[in-house]
């Protein structure tokens, strides 16, 4: 039972990192991405392939982030020429193209996926225990949350907020809109790649199916459900959407119907997300 609980916790942690990374694009910079699972997948495949070919864990982990962010740059350069719904469909197309690449390349194992990915090893010892792995995921998550808060307050974060609120006036104030938007994609894909790496070494087996459009949509739902732009919200969104299928499991075949209906109901009754504009620091902070 505790193994199961830790499994769910690890999944929540990995998806929380993924949702937070998407929140940089959607919440901080006000852009849209419907192909986020592609970055998740690239990180997973790169890290898995590097470790199968003999690289150690920390190196493979960071390289997967860096290589994914390079691909983020490759996506951002052409696609940030378009905006809004056009950007949504271009990123969606990118996700589908990358999915087909995973499915058809020889090196990724095609539809069978990548088998036998070595486990994470720290200080030369492989990390097999679930609580141990959860510790690693939680550590990465904490580093990410701190980075996100720092980023939000920094010059970059304020530039993103200005672009999100009104890109024309942001450009008027001398902000390099295209450059900062590209930076949002690079930062976001870096963290998504790290999440992918963690996922690959946790499950030891990956296939193209995990990184399809449904995952992109689920991650976007986590961000919107939690409250666009809210850091605590994205984490809460990830926790809820991972927990929901586990809770709905007794409903078996009716699971997806409830999931879909819940998304619609949530948007109708609480469109600002669970957290909305409420900040968790204010909820527990001093009240005047």
């Amino acid at each position: 039972m505790s193994v199961y609980i830790f499994h769910v916790l690890i999944m929540m942690g990995i998806y929380a990192i993924l949702a937070l990374s998407l929140n940089i694009i959607v919440g901080f910079a006000g852009l849209v991405s419907l192909g986020h699972a592609a970055f998740f997948g690239i990180g997973a495949y790169v890290s898995g392939l590097l470790m199968i070919n003999g690289l150690g864990f920390p190196a493979a982990f960071f390289l997967s982030g860096i290589i994914t962010s390079l691909l983020g740059l490759c996506l951002a350069l052409p696609s940030l020429r378009v905006k809004d719904d056009y950007l949504a469909i271009v990123t969606l197309g990118f996700g589908i193209i990358i999915g087909l690449v995973f499915l058809n390349l020889e090196i990724t194992g095609g539809a069978d996926g990548l088998v036998g990915i070595p486990p994470v090893s720290l200080m030369g010892k492989p990390l097999y225990s679930k609580p141990g792995f959860f510790g690693l995921v939680a550590g990465v998550l904490v580093v990410m949350i701190v980075t996100m808060y720092t980023l939000k307050q920094s010059k970059i974060g304020r530039a993103w907020a200005a672009i999100r609120d009104n890109d024309v006036s942001a450009a008027f104030m001398g902000i390099n809109v295209y450059g900062y938007k590209t930076m949002a994609f690079i930062t976001s894909s870096f963290w998504a790649g790290l999440a992918g790496s963690l996922y690959a070494h946790y499950t030891a087996y990956i296939n193209p199916h995990t990184f399809n459009m449904h995952t992109s949509i689920m991650v976007l739902s986590m961000v919107v459900l939690g409250g666009i732009g809210s850091i605590t919200g994205s984490i809460l969104g990830a926790v809820l959407l991972i927990l929901l299928p586990e809770i709905l499991r007794p409903l078996a075949d009716y699971q997806d119907i409830f999931y879909g209906a819940l998304l619609v109901a949530m948007m109708i009754f609480r469109p600002q997300g669970i957290m909305g504009r409420v900040k968790i620091t204010e909820m527990f902070g001093r009240k005047k």
Partner: peptide
């Protein structure tokens, strides 16, 4: 916010396709 109806539509799409499967 334009993302809100987008998610709602995605929810409706999941609902309808799983309804069809049933």
């Amino acid at each position: 916010h334009p993302l809100i109806p987008l998610i709602s539509a995605i929810g409706a799409s999941i609902f309808l396709s799983s309804l069809a499967r049933l």
